[in-house]
Design a protein around this nucleic acid. Structure first.
Lengths: 157, 157
DNA sequence: GTCATTTCTTGATGTACATCAATGCATAGG
DNA sequence: CCTATGCATTGATGTACATCAAGAAATGAC
């Protein structure tokens, strides 16, 4: 468990690396994402204070995610082996599974607008801290589409 | 840990129930799914032999998923508390996280065709055992769209 | 401060997929 | 055996979103 200080913009991990680490965010903000064949980014997860950010790839296979710092960030880094030995936090794991389940259901059944509304309710602080195009990427839509959704919502009031 | 025998069509759990159980499939096939406001089903997961099927909802809150038997199925049922006491299988948990990560990335970045191709590679046996409309539901597309995708793919050869 | 870069927005157009409707085939139940 | 129900396919049409392009506003580099 090593504490490191990642300046905004620092790339912590690349897609394709074998030995992926686990990043416990103390302060700041990380993000994990893929880049598809067309060169398009898809944000998988934001990692604000107290989040555990990791690529959940299979052991000894190349990972899928890039991880970088959106803000200057202080992180505790560990290998997965270290973490397993320490005995991982079961409740945290279950919470993580819950988050992912919600995300999957959301992606399968909700419109762009519904996803955005859910996002600002669930992560109000993050919305302020990242460019909107990253929110769009997290929601699985384009920045243009998000802009129009926001327009519509502000009209309504 | 109680062993039960669920006939094809049996509903094991409803959306909205508080105390959701964990179902370890011995033989047969389960499925978990939601129904959205428009009455549309979205299959969250198939549970063939040796799969653990569960709604990963937060403790003491209403769950989101229906779970039923697609085939005559033999299951071991446990409460989450029981399972936690026994000490859960960490590797299984990590594999689960990996599966969900792949699913999320797939939903965010792939076309209907790509998702279907990935599905038949990953779950070749399931494709044979369920109606295509359930595959479509799992992939997040309509049966009509899946039919056209399959058409296209068979033309190509 | 100035210039360059990124971000956000707006409009025009394109497209992948949904929806709706009709038909042919299975399958299951009485 | 016959009928009802569910499943798969096909065609016509609709729509939510993507893509492309341009401009304005904010941010950052030096």
């Amino acid at each position: 468990m090593k504490k490191i200080n990642a300046k905004k913009g620092t790339l912590l991990q690349q897609k394709g690396e074998i030995s992926s680490k686990v990043y416990l965010v103390e302060s700041g903000l990380l993000r994990s994402y893929t880049i598809d064949e067309k060169g398009k980014e898809h944000i998988y997860m934001f990692g604000p204070e107290n989040w555990l950010v990791a690529d959940n790839c299979e052991p000894n296979t190349p990972c899928q995610l890039f991880i970088d710092a959106i803000e200057d960030t202080i992180i505790n880094v560990a290998t997965k082996e270290e973490l397993l030995k320490e005995g991982p936090d079961l409740n945290a794991l279950l919470r993580r599974l819950n988050t992912m389940q919600n995300r999957i259901i959301m992606l399968m059944s909700s419109s762009a607008k519904e996803r955005y509304e859910h996002f600002i309710k669930t992560y109000p602080n993050i919305t302020q801290r990242v460019p909107l195009k990253m929110v769009a990427s997290y929601l699985g839509i384009t920045p243009e589409a998000l802009s129009r959704v926001r327009n519509e919502l502000s009209q309504k009031k």
